[in-house]
Computed example of a mutant assay.
Amino acid sequence: MRLEGTVALVTGGARRLGRALSLGLAEAGCDVFIHYRSSPDAAGRTAEDVRAVERRAATGAADLTVPKQIDGLFEAFDAAFGRLDILVNSAASFERTPFDEATVSEWDAAQALNLRAPFLMTQRAAVRMRAVTERSGSRGEPWAPGVIINMSDMSAIAAWKGFAPHGVSKAGLLHLTAMTARELGPEVRANAIVPGPILPPPGETEKDPAWREKGRRVPLGRTGDAEEVAHAARFLAENDYVTGATIHVDGGEHLLTGGRV
Score class of each variant (00 low, 15 high):
residue 62 A to R: 02
residue 125 A to C: 08
residue 157 I to S: 07
residue 255 L to H: 07
residue 54 E to M: 03
residue 236 L to D: 10
residue 201 P to R: 03
residue 147 V to R: 09
residue 259 G to N: 08
residue 24 G to N: 02
residue 171 A to L: 13
residue 36 Y to V: 03
residue 75 E to N: 08
residue 51 R to L: 02
residue 94 F to Q: 13
residue 213 E to R: 15
residue 235 F to C: 14
residue 75 E to P: 12
residue 60 G to T: 01
residue 39 S to I: 07
residue 11 T to M: 05
residue 235 F to N: 09
residue 166 H to V: 05
residue 179 M to S: 14
residue 228 E to K: 14
residue 137 G to R: 15
residue 255 L to F: 07
residue 31 D to W: 00
residue 153 D to C: 12
residue 17 L to Q: 09
residue 153 D to M: 11
residue 223 T to Q: 09
residue 181 A to W: 09
residue 118 P to Y: 01
residue 96 R to M: 15
residue 128 R to M: 00
residue 47 A to H: 06
residue 51 R to V: 03
residue 117 A to K: 09
residue 63 D to A: 01
residue 89 N to S: 14
residue 25 L to Y: 05
residue 179 M to D: 10
residue 95 E to T: 14
residue 170 K to F: 13
residue 98 P to Y: 14
residue 34 I to Q: 04
residue 116 R to Q: 11
residue 140 G to R: 12
residue 215 G to N: 08
residue 44 G to K: 06
residue 248 H to T: 01
residue 175 H to Q: 15
residue 224 G to K: 07
residue 16 R to Y: 13
residue 200 P to G: 11
residue 58 A to S: 03
residue 192 A to Q: 05
residue 155 S to R: 13
residue 178 A to M: 09
residue 7 V to W: 00
residue 243 T to A: 05
residue 167 G to S: 13
residue 98 P to R: 15
residue 63 D to Y: 04
residue 6 T to C: 05
residue 138 S to F: 04
residue 203 G to F: 04
residue 104 V to H: 03
residue 104 V to S: 12
residue 7 V to S: 01
residue 184 L to S: 10
residue 148 I to H: 02
residue 199 L to T: 10
residue 186 P to N: 08
residue 243 T to D: 10
residue 156 A to D: 11
